[in-house]
Computed example of a mutant assay.
Amino acid sequence: MTKAREQQICLDATPYYHCVSRCVRRAFLCGKDQLTGCDYEHRRLWVEERILMLAKTFAIDVCAYAVMSNHYHVVLRVDKAQALSWSNKEVVERWHCIFKGNLLSQRFIRDESLDNAEMSVLKGIIENWRERLFSISQFMQLINEGVAREANSEDQCTGRFWEGRYKSQALLDEAALAACMAYVDLNPIRAKMAKTPESSDNTSIKRRIKKAKSSNSPNQARQQPADLLAFVGNPRKTMPKGLPFRLQDYIELVDWTGRQVRVNKRGRIYDDLPNILERLHIDQNRWLSVTTDFEVRFKGLVGRGHVVRICAEQFGLKQASGVRSCKALFGS
Score class of each variant (00 low, 15 high):
209 I>M: 01
38 C>Y: 11
300 G>S: 10
112 E>V: 03
206 K>M: 12
66 A>Q: 11
225 P>E: 08
326 C>E: 07
240 P>Q: 12
128 N>P: 13
311 C>P: 09
143 I>L: 06
222 R>T: 14
165 R>T: 00
210 K>C: 14
138 Q>D: 09
163 E>G: 03
198 E>A: 04
127 E>V: 01
131 E>G: 04
303 G>C: 00
77 R>K: 00
276 I>G: 10
96 H>R: 01
293 D>V: 11
141 Q>P: 14
229 L>F: 07
41 E>H: 13
225 P>I: 04
273 L>R: 11
130 R>G: 13
148 A>S: 06
278 E>P: 12
315 F>H: 01
237 K>F: 15
279 R>W: 15
106 Q>D: 01
57 T>F: 11
130 R>H: 12
23 C>Q: 03
2 T>C: 06
292 T>D: 14
269 I>V: 02
170 A>V: 11
15 P>M: 04
271 D>P: 10
309 R>T: 03
319 Q>H: 03
27 A>Q: 04
259 R>Y: 12
224 Q>D: 04
322 G>P: 08
128 N>Y: 12
74 V>P: 15
166 Y>R: 09
219 N>A: 00
121 V>A: 15
237 K>E: 14
187 N>P: 15
232 V>G: 08
235 P>I: 06
312 A>E: 09
327 K>T: 12
146 G>C: 08
253 L>D: 06
102 N>P: 03
293 D>M: 06
298 F>D: 01
256 W>M: 12
245 F>L: 08
213 K>Y: 14
270 Y>F: 08
292 T>N: 15
115 D>N: 07
313 E>P: 00
96 H>D: 12
52 L>D: 09
